[in-house]
Design a protein around this nucleic acid. Structure first.
Lengths: 207, 207
DNA sequence: GTCTATAGATCGATAGAC
DNA sequence: GTCTATCGATCTATAGAC
C-alpha cells in the first residue's frame, strides 16, 4: 500500500506542475522550480515521475479529464431546437474561452512536434469527444423531425467552428482578453441564428 | 555600403533559421546549429542579429510577408456570387493547409507568451489582413445586390471559420496529414453550399 | 521516501586574433 | 566581417546520506 503522505506529495507535484506548465509553458519551467513550488526536493520529484516528459503527460491527461467534466451533458428531450442549440453553445463557449482550456491548447500545440501522442490524447478526449457528442445530439433532433441534414458530423463541425470564430484565434494568441458574459451571449445568438438558417430544412430540400 | 558578401551571409542565416525554426521550433534549435547550417560562425551570426529573439523576429516577419503574397487578389467584377466565393475559398484553403503556414502558426502560438508583439505582428499581417480583404469583397457583392448582410466582418469571419473546420485543428496538431487536392475541393463545395444557404437573402429578410 | 550536492551536457553570448 | 575558443549560466537527471 502506498502511504497517503506519498500520495499527497504526488498530488502536490501534479498541481504545481499543472499550474506552472499552463502559465509559463513546458520549456521555460524547470524541474527545479516545480520542486520548489510543490514543495519537494528534486529527488522526490523524480521518484514520482521518471522524467520531465512523463510529468507533462500526467499534467495533460489530468487537465483534459478535468476539462471534459465541465462540458455539461445536454438533454435534448425537452425544448425546441433553438433552445437546445443555445444550451449546447453556452456550455461550449464557456469551456473554450476559459483560461485553462486556452492554456492547455497552447501547450499542446507548442509541444505537438515532440510529443505527438499527447496531441492525439488531447484531441480524442477533448475536441473529438465534444464533436461526437454534438453529432449524436443532432442525430436525435433529426429523428424527432426538428432537423434534417445529410451528415451529422459535418453539422457538428460547422456549429463548433462558427462558435470559435476569429475571436478564438485572438484569444489563443493572447492578443485579446477573454470575452465577458454579455459578449459571449451576443456572439452565441448571432451564431445560432446563422446556423439555423443554414440548416433550415426548407432551403435544404431546395438544394 | 554593405558588401554583397555580407548580405549573402545574412540571407543564408535567415534561410537556415527559418527552415529550422519552422521544422523544429524555437527552443529546440540552438544558435550553434543555425550557424552550422548557414554555414557561418556563431560570431558572424551575432554580428547580423543581436540575439536569438531578434533572429526569431526576422524569421516571423519575412515568413508572414512571403505567405501573404500567396493569397491571390480576387476580382469580384466578373462572375456570380458562388463562383467568386469558390475562388476566394480555394485561395484561402490552399494557404492555410500548407506546411509552411501551419508551421508558422504553431511557432507563433508556442512563443506567444514570451513574445506578444510577434503574435500581434502575425495576426495583423496574416489572419486580420485576410479577414479585412474578404469583408471588403463581401461589401462590394452587397452593393451589387447579389448579397445582403448586416455585418460584412461577421460574414467574413463565418466564411473563414467554416473553411477551417475541425480539420484545421487536426492538421495543426499534426495528427492528420494535409488534405489532398480532391479532398480540399469537396470540402470547399460543402462549405460554400452551406454558407450560401445561411446568407440567403430571402431567409435573411425573414429574420 | 526524502533530502543535499553534484555530475554531465548544452546553451546564449562574447573576447580576441586576423 | 569573420573566425576559433571559451565563459558563465542553466538545465535534466542521479549518487549517496539519512
Amino acid at each position: 500500500m502506498i502511504s497517503s503522505a506519498s500520495d499527497a506529495k504526488r498530488q502536490a507535484i501534479l498541481k504545481a506542475a499543472t499550474r506552472m506548465f499552463l502559465a509559463q509553458g513546458y520549456r521555460t519551467v524547470s524541474m527545479e522550480k516545480i520542486a520548489q513550488a510543490a514543495p519537494v526536493s528534486k529527488a522526490t520529484l523524480y521518484n514520482h515521475f521518471d522524467s520531465k516528459n512523463a510529468l507533462l503527460a500526467g499534467v495533460i491527461a489530468e487537465t483534459c479529464e478535468s476539462l471534459l467534466q465541465t462540458m455539461t451533458l445536454i438533454r435534448i428531450d425537452e425544448g425546441d431546437m433553438e433552445s437546445t442549440l443555445n444550451k449546447i453553445a453556452a456550455s461550449f463557449v464557456e469551456l473554450i474561452f476559459s483560461e485553462k482550456a486556452l492554456s492547455i491548447h497552447r501547450l499542446i500545440i507548442a509541444e505537438s512536434r515532440e510529443f505527438p501522442e499527447l496531441s492525439r490524447l488531447f484531441y480524442s478526449t477533448g475536441p473529438q469527444a465534444a464533436l461526437t457528442q454534438l453529432a449524436e445530439n443532432l442525430q436525435q433532433l433529426k429523428n424527432k423531425g426538428q432537423f434534417q441534414d445529410v451528415d451529422s458530423f459535418f453539422s457538428a463541425d460547422v456549429f463548433f467552428s462558427l462558435l470559435k470564430g476569429d475571436l478564438y484565434l485572438q484569444c489563443l494568441l493572447g492578443i485579446k482578453p477573454l470575452p465577458a458574459t454579455e459578449e459571449k451571449q451576443r456572439w452565441i445568438e448571432q451564431v445560432v441564428s446563422f446556423y439555423m438558417r443554414g440548416m433550415d430544412t426548407t432551403t435544404w430540400r431546395n438544394k
